[in-house]
């Protein structure tokens, strides 16, 4: 056993524990802040943990056994992408792994007979198609700036990425709105409340412990994208933290001031707006 193995193991365990706690608390803060924006008292900050514990204690009811596999796959790849990001691996590979998580979710939605889940799965595919190209472009931009595809290279870069990639950052805000399932981008399912058109979209047929797994998976996904955004001011973690906080509040604010939109509009915004901004930024780096 070499020392590298031990340090990696330590980082992995710390990330899993930290991600779980931070993810739950962030979701709690999200719910509390959302409630305050709506002039409500709102749940306690630790409510998401209560929810997951309660779900975990419920009877395991599954429409078919594959659901559990897909839910666990989703959780595993969400955790893995976060761990690899913290370990500073190759960004493209990390993106690929996080896409695996999304695909597992889509398969989970498709594996049941419910038309709501199926239509939501179709929409989730569109969401993936809308968000992933923006993320790839962002990574290309990062490569162009740092000359390296690994996440570890970014903190070593002398200047914050945001200086070179401001438009990419804006494009990422859209992509992350999609990934966090916030209005107006919550077409396939929504993070906290039952979805109106499709009941609860992909999550419709998940229940009890299986749903708890999905909830936790979503926490990790959220942390993953926030850490990814944090890379834009990587050398100084205090400013990065400030950046993340304001981004988070901005997403909440947008969630609260807009209605859900249709998927065709989502594609338009993500491709024309998001990819356009990112592409302009990347092209500008080339020149």
């Amino acid at each position: 056993m070499n020392p590298l193995f031990w340090s990696w193991s330590a980082v992995t365990i710390a990330t899993v524990l930290g991600g779980f706690l931070l993810g739950g608390f962030l979701t709690g803060i999200d719910r509390k802040l959302t409630a305050r924006m709506q002039n409500r008292v709102g749940p306690p900050i630790v409510q998401p943990f209560f929810d997951v514990i309660k779900l975990w204690g419920k009877e395991r009811v599954m429409v078919n056994p594959m659901q559990l596999l897909y839910a666990n796959t989703y959780l595993f790849f969400s955790v893995a992408s976060l761990v690899l990001l913290i370990l500073g691996w190759d960004l493209l590979m990390i993106l690929f792994i996080s896409a695996f998580a999304s695909v597992a979710l889509v398969l989970g939605g498709y594996s049941v007979e419910s038309p709501y889940a199926r239509i939501a799965s179709q929409r989730e595919i569109i969401q993936i198609a809308a968000a992933e190209p923006v993320l790839v472009l962002a990574m290309v931009g990062m490569f162009l700036v740092t000359g390296d595809f690994t996440a570890a290279a970014i903190p070593e870069h002398p200047r914050p990425l945001l200086v070179d990639l401001p438009l990419v950052f804006v494009a990422l805000l859209i992509a992350i709105g999609i990934k966090l399932r916030k209005s107006p981008f919550d077409v396939s399912t929504s993070a906290h409340h039952a979805h109106q058109e499709l009941v609860r979209g992909i999550y419709t047929e998940f229940a009890g412990p299986t749903l708890a797994v999905l909830e936790v998976g979503h926490w990790f996904e959220m942390i993953f994208f926030l850490v990814f955004l944090g890379l834009f001011w990587a050398p100084d973690w205090r400013i990065a933290g400030l950046l993340l906080t304001s981004t988070f509040i901005l997403e909440l604010l947008v969630d609260n001031i807009s209605a859900r939109y249709t998927w065709s509009w989502l594609l338009k915004v993500a491709w024309v707006g998001g990819m356009g901004l990112a592409a302009v930024n990347v092209a500008w780096l080339y020149l």
Partner: peptide, 21 residues
């Protein structure tokens, strides 16, 4: 989108209208 912004900010600063039932 911005029509709701004032309302949201006002709410955040105000005391909640609901009660802990």
């Amino acid at each position: 989108m911005l029509e709701m912004l004032g309302n949201v900010i006002k709410n955040t600063l105000a005391t909640p209208a609901t009660r802990r039932f």
